[in-house]
Nucleic acid binder design. Structure first.
Lengths: 339, 339
DNA sequence: TATATTTGCTTAAACGTTTAAGCAAATATA
DNA sequence: TATATTTGCTTAAACGTTTAAGCAAATATA
């Protein structure tokens, strides 16, 4: 195996100290331009690659940011990650992506992995299962910057970037009312998760605002998987008094509902209007296309990264809480467009 | 900020040397059970977390494996990664995921990032754009294990895990022939990429085997994006003599073709049978569902991880090349099932 | 011309581990 | 009982950086 070039090798070639080389490579003002040029040239010639482990160990900074997402194979999360990465790379940080697969256990393992790798910060979106926040408290107590996006909890008292879920529900209900819908159902997530609770509250308040009946059998909590979307849709269709619109709090569950409607030859939007949430790619692929909410993933990713950078910049007075709430956008498609 | 617990803190508590603590934590046989127990207890009490950077620096092993994929938001890649991760985690390795977004430039940057992070190995699937292999040669020349999957090049002469693309094309053509199709078109990838070349060869040879005409206008190369899938389908429909089946070498491009057929009210499979490649989730979501090829992503992920582990186990005689070629599976769905 | 400041480096220690070498005490072997 | 081996540790160096402290030479200031 070839020996890797170190700072000492460069120092030997030029007959200067390793310290001078290190400083030259970092453009220290106390090193002459002549030396800097010479060092950089030799570094290039010897194909020098800085040993990240050594510098991280010495400086106490790994320049690594850990990311935890429920999954990467969704448009939303992969776009958030991509934009986050772009901002962080420019600032000299690299990211380590981990997936929780919506499992609390895996999420804890991921946190351990990231702490073990000595990341300088963690940006996370919590798993559906996560209720116990002690693992996240652990991160906080270590003094490592923690930023949540999309799925976050207020109680943790950390920076957060997300969309206005409450308003999004209002937009959806308003749209459906305009289409002439009178009995609007909501297949929501679990109330214990903040964002889903907000969507539910928005839905309820909007119904009130537009003087629509608030039938308890039209409001269903679920885990928002495709399979549960199917089941809950079947439940709704079994009612004596069927809804004429269904707003599902997640696109994957909306797809389940969509499949059931298709199988039973129930027309969208004529018989039942359907609205999802998340603007996943497939909502524009299926027929009819599904109305959904665009969550501005790129903006969320950028803001999350910038928030992290703010943290490491002025490490002294970090604890001014940043809550960034973006306005979502309703993408109206065929599944709900009656006119 | 709280000072982190180190091995020395534990040593001080027990009045033994730091070296003894290190050995105790690693269950060295020359440390007494009594000491081991005591050390582990104190480590727990003080909430000791080993400093990965220090051990990696000293031992020359980072226990990190770098992964490069064109994108994570596809079923195939996210499943490969998940399975890879499972195997590697069990062996004490963590993974760093990076995306190339099908860009050669980003791919090179990713390689630099991973080398910089001192990964112990790289598992990659190459970007569509990648033709120049010098960056991968760089990895090889550093003596870092390199394993390719799905998209790999023979010339690099490294371990590879993938499916039998040639046979897959045979399966597809055979299936279409059985459905009574006579003019089978192929929207393929670029010949310069090995896997797409194999798919094309398989298609051509299978046509010959079943005595079907080999019309050059039915064989089209493309970048296999959804947009290109649309364009190439439109081209095929413009022929005087239309095909009665279209085999697209990627699901996203197949989706583009699918959309065009739907828009023009061309029935699948009656007018034109459609087959994709990759078994992306949406192939089972759209209507009609799209026949596709399952690439055994979980198997590929596991095998890639195991191949890496083999490399690090017997580092002496590494260079026995491993090429693992799995048989793919044809998932027959409505878009091609005439009977 | 005498003193102060700046420039351009060196020296030495440190980050938190791991590991080769070695040593005394305990135990086994002849 | 004398020697050999094993057990259970310690000592010291090392991995490749960064950085505080310091020093001589060069330059600026009074």
């Amino acid at each position: 195996m070839k020996k890797k070039t170190t700072i000492k090798d460069i120092a030997n070639v030029l007959n200067i100290s390793a310290a001078a080389v290190s400083k030259a490579l970092h453009d220290d003002s106390r090193i002459s331009d002549k030396t800097k040029k010479a060092v950089k040239q030799v570094a290039k010639n010897l194909n020098y690659q800085p040993n990240h482990l050594a510098s991280a160990l010495r400086s106490g900074k790994s320049n690594l940011v850990g990311v935890i997402v429920p999954r990467t194979n969704s448009n939303f999360f992969s776009s958030v990650i991509q934009n986050m990465e772009e901002v962080l790379n420019k600032a000299g940080y690299n990211i380590i992506i981990t997936q929780s697969n919506e499992s609390y256990k895996k999420e804890c393992a991921n946190i351990d992995t990231l702490l073990f790798t000595q990341v300088d910060g963690i940006i996370a979106s919590m798993a559906n299962e996560t209720v116990d926040l002690s693992y996240y408290e652990k991160v906080k107590s270590k003094g490592i910057p923690l930023i949540l996006f999309d799925r976050g909890e207020n109680d943790l008292n950390v920076d957060y970037i997300g969309i206005n879920d409450y308003n999004s529900s209002h937009m959806i209900v308003e749209h459906l009312v305009k289409q002439g819908c009178k009995r609007i159902a909501h297949i929501g997530g679990f109330k214990r998760t903040r964002i889903f609770n907000n969507r539910i509250r928005g839905y309820v308040d909007a119904l009130e605002k537009y003087n629509l009946p608030q039938d308890p059998e039209l409001l269903i909590e679920s885990s928002l998987t495709t399979e549960e979307g199917r089941e809950k849709m079947i439940e709704l269709l079994a009612l004596k008094n069927r809804p004429d619109a269904v707003y599902v709090a997640g696109d994957y569950a909306a797809l389940g509902a969509f499949q059931v409607l298709n199988e039973q030859n129930i027309r969208m939007p004529e018989d039942i209007a359907l609205v999802g949430f998340g603007n996943e790619a497939f909502t524009a692929m299926v027929s009819p296309t599904i109305t959904s909410i665009e969550q501005h993933s790129s903006e969320i990713g950028q803001q999350a990264a910038k928030t992290f950078l703010k943290h490491v910049k002025n490490e002294s007075f970090t604890q001014t809480l940043n809550k960034i709430i973006l306005n979502a956008e309703l993408i109206i498609r065929d599944s709900s467009k009656k006119q």
